[in-house]
């Protein structure tokens, strides 16, 4: 299994090459681009929402437990269950859980930290985060992929073991 990486000058060139590569039957394609190629869906917003709600609920329950059951105290004649006072902290804990879940979720879903990946060996990828728009093809027949990329005006093509 080999990986063939082609670097293109800009986004438009890469996108046309992608379309034609797909027509040519290559399917295991991954792009490496300096800025987000386009929109896409991801389960993370749902994870964040759930984490936020769980955090808020936990915060609210924790305060109710501590003021109601753990050590009920008479504070200024106020009721033991003074729920309006619990809302700010519940909201804060919910937000904390949400944001942490978002960031940690992103790292988990991308199986980061992955400091090394086989595709890193390709010199073209070193500029994938600056000004080159790269396409990587996982293929058993690397030379066909190499020719296809040259044909679609790739500036630089490299091949690395998978």
């Amino acid at each position: 299994m080999r990986i063939v990486v082609g670097a293109f000058a800009d986004k438009a060139a890469m996108q046309t090459a992608l379309a034609r590569l797909r027509e040519a039957g290559f399917n295991a394609i991954e792009t490496y681009t300096p800025s987000p190629p386009g929109e896409g869906h991801s389960p993370l917003p749902l994870v964040i929402l759930v984490a936020g709600l769980v955090g808020a609920a936990l915060g609210f329950w924790w305060q109710t437990h501590e003021t109601g059951q753990a050590y009920p105290l008479d504070i200024g004649g106020r009721a033991h269950f003074s729920w309006p006072a619990y809302v700010p902290i519940a909201f804060e804990i919910g937000v904390l859980f949400a944001i942490t879940a978002g960031v940690v979720g992103f790292f988990l879903i991308n199986r980061m930290p992955q400091l090394w990946a086989p595709v890193d060996e390709a010199p073209a990828l070193r500029r994938a985060t600056s000004d080159r728009w790269c396409i990587a093809i996982h293929t058993e027949a690397p030379d066909q992929a190499r020719h296809a990329l040259w044909r679609f005006a790739a500036l630089q093509v490299d091949e690395v073991p998978a």
């Binding site: 930290p113 992955q114 400091l115 090394w116 990946a117 890193d120 060996e121 010199p123």
Partner: peptide, 18 residues
């Protein structure tokens, strides 16, 4: 110009974070 990190770096990073 090979990759910046050796393959073993993945395991090392995970260990450090954990």
């Amino acid at each position: 110009m090979a990759a910046i990190f050796p393959p073993a770096a993945n395991l090392a990073a995970k260990l450090v974070l954990l």
